[in-house]
Amino acid sequence: MDFVSRLQNVDRRIIYILLILVTAVPMISPLNLPLSISPGTTEFFNIVDALEPGDTVLFSLDYAPSGAPDVHPIAAAVMEHLMDKGVNVVSVSFWDAGPMFGEQLMRHYEELGYEYGVHFANLGFVPGQETAIKRFGENVGTVSRDFRGNPVSSLPIMEGIKDTRDFALVIDFVAGNPGIQEWVRQVQGSLGITLLAGSSTVNVPQTMPFVDSGQVKAMLAGLRGAAEYELVMGKPGASVAKMDAQSLGHIVIILFIVVGNIAFFLDKKR
């Protein structure tokens, strides 16, 4: 087999091992590449930063383990900012896996002395997809008991909250449908809530028209968005640490495309 044929038919396992190496090594020994902040992240940060202590924000946790490594870090970064500012967080989910991520977030702050029901609460999962989003959006009382089994009316954090307009902000952390499209269609359009998105990277292109039209006020995009948010907050954490690996991952895939095309053209010329 000559060079061009060999280049055309590289064993896929070599591609896999290369990808593992270029992403795993910089995770173990980071290169500390500088990271710039995109305008969208600054806008998101400013909206959240303008909240007053005692305000309450709704998190809609619409992701599952399949997208969690890309979306959960955004929720964690924003949660950190809100807890720092003394803003309360109520979470709800229209994906059945969502409440478990809500618990992950809240358990961490419970260990730090924050109080469940006062600083945050997890309303759990509401089945029914788009219909459930509409129903919950117009009447938060749709959920009678939280994820831990407490009557929602007994939680101090829920005092005075009837519909989603009573939250200072609604942030949808989302990896697909139901998610931001349904929130825009069923709640934002009719109630005019202030809606923000923490979107998985894959969903960013589809969500852009909503950001451009102002239906979604600002968006954090995937793991990179989380890393930028950590930097703006002044608390670089796990997401920032992964950015070097992300960089090299991109570079190696671009190289794969380039080498694959060189092989293709050499073969065509022959």
Partner: peptide, 15 residues
């Protein structure tokens, strides 16, 4: 899927 995307980038993403 990251591995499959890498493999597709090498084998299928042609000009």
């Amino acid at each position: 899927l990251a591995f499959y995307v890498a493999s597709a980038a090498y084998r299928a993403f042609r000009m």
